[in-house]
Every structure is written in C-alpha cells, then in structure tokens.
C-alpha cells in the first residue's frame, strides 16, 4: 500500500517538474512549480521529516512563488 503511494508521489513529482519546464506561460509554469513543492512536502512528511516538510512548504511553495509572481509583474506578455 505504502509502496504504491510513494510510486504515485514520485510520478507526480516528475510530471509537475516537466510541466514547469514545458509551459510557455510563465504564470502557469510557476504554479506547476508550486504544486511540485507541495507534492515534495507530502513526500518529506511521509519520510518522517516534518521540519524539512515545513521548510519546503514555507519557502518552496509560498515564498518562491511570491517572488516569481512579483518578478513576472515586471515582464510583458509577448504572444506570437
């Protein structure tokens, strides 16, 4: 049971990481990176590292997203 759970989480990690590379829209890429951090938080929690999970949720999911969103405010959308 636990084995399949880890398998699902690992596959979700790879998928969200690839999505954050392949998205053309910057905001969508950042959101998928944030989802990647959240899934990684669950993985850390299951591996008995709750303090690393809290740090990952605080910095990876929240702060990095916020900084990227602030940076994207300065860019312009250029569609071709």
């Amino acid at each position: 049971m636990m084995y399949y759970f880890f398998l699902v989480i690992s596959i979700a990690l790879v998928i969200t990481a690839l999505l954050s590379i392949y998205f053309r829209d910057l905001l969508a890429a950042i959101v998928s990176y944030s989802v990647f951090s959240l899934v990684l938080t669950v993985l850390y929690f299951l591996l008995d590292a709750p303090d690393v999970a809290i740090a990952e949720a605080g910095i990876g999911a929240a702060l990095t997203t916020c900084i990227f969103v602030i940076a994207i405010r300065m860019t312009r959308r250029r569609e071709e």
Binding site: P50, A55, A57, L63
Partner: peptide, 29 residues
Amino acid sequence: YLVVHGHVSPGGGFQGGSVMASATALLLI
C-alpha cells in the same frame, strides 16, 4: 508557534521564520 516550540516539537527558527515570511507575502499580494 513553530519558533517558540522549536526545542520541543518539529520546527524551529528557520521553519517558523519562513512560514511567517509567507504571511507577509500574502499581505503584499
């Protein structure tokens, strides 16, 4: 809570500080 209970339960200065800073980010956004 995380900062104050850093020596009793999982957490500590870095974790609690980053969680509080994400609260500041929420205010700005």
